[in-house]
């Protein structure tokens, strides 16, 4: 099966020394891929680089057959890539409805109303809050608005930067369940996660990054079983 996203030998940074070096991995269509690693490993930088928010020094990024390395963020959205940043990921003064609407501007879906219904079916909590400013919602609901906004342009690939950061364990499970639902609609998800153990349980594929370089790759189950990975990231016990 050919990859939807293919990252090869990617070296990138923010103008200074490179943050990630020679990173390579593939994401197949309709899978949930997770990037794991300790703090400062460059996980978020990988997402930002794919989304053209950093400076690519060398390497290639191919999405759906097109070379997108060093492109423009707005073109990526039209190509079918959406991103949800880690924090500050909703327009706080815009209502939930407006937040979702803004998500369609860069790449309008064929049927806006149908897409919105589809998103709201995934996040039924939001139906009652459509006219409320997004800034007034709880952290978990804001995360839903953010993911919903990203889904409104019907992307092929969604990039999620730590979707569960700062959420309570209960919400964490809900978000992960939602991600499985989203995959069922045919979208592909690439996300960065701190909660490695839970993430590996839902992930089809996982890539571990250490010091900005590839460390290990495999299916969620493989990595959960891997001795090295376990010792370094998953700890001995439950957390």
């Amino acid at each position: 099966m050919s990859a939807l996203l293919s990252v090869r030998g990617l070296t990138a940074g923010y103008g200074g020394p490179p943050i990630i070096e020679e990173v390579s991995f593939n994401v197949a269509p309709h899978e949930i891929a997770v990037i794991l690693g300790p703090n400062g490993a460059g996980k978020s930088t990988v997402l930002k680089t794919i989304f053209a928010l950093t400076t690519v020094l060398s390497g290639a990024i191919e999405f759906d057959g097109a070379d997108i390395a060093g492109g423009k963020t707005s073109t990526l959205v039209t190509l079918g890539v959406s991103a949800v940043p880690q924090s500050r990921n909703v327009f706080r003064n815009l209502t939930v409805e407006e937040n979702l609407d803004v998500g369609t501007y860069a790449a309008p879906p064929a049927d806006k109303v149908a897409t919105r219904e589809k998103v709201l079916d995934l996040f039924p909590d939001l139906r009652a809050k459509l006219r409320q400013p997004a800034g007034e919602l709880s952290g978990g609901q804001r995360q839903m608005v953010a993911i919903g906004r990203a889904m409104m342009c019907e992307p092929k690939l969604i990039l999620l930067d730590e979707p569960t950061a700062g959420l309570s364990p209960a919400y964490l499970e809900r978000i992960f369940d939602l991600l499985l639902d989203i995959r069922k609609t045919g979208m592909t998800i690439l996300m960065v996660e701190q909660n490695a153990r839970q993430a590996l349980q839902i992930a089809d594929k996982a890539h571990v990054l250490v010091n900005g370089r590839n460390f290990a790759s495999g299916t969620g189950k493989e990595l959960l079983a891997d001795e090295d990975v376990r010792r370094s990231f998953l700890g001995g016990g439950g957390e």
């Binding site: 963020t73 039209t78 500050r88 990921n89 909703v90 609407d101 790449a107």
Partner: peptide, 26 residues
């Protein structure tokens, strides 16, 4: 500002320019 696409985009950029860029707004 509240109903049109351009108006909403303006409010979005005013709210959070980085997120507006990530959302692909012009």
């Amino acid at each position: 500002l509240s109903r049109t696409r351009t108006g909403r985009s303006m409010r979005a950029v005013s709210d959070d320019p980085e997120l507006a860029e990530v959302s692909g707004l012009d």
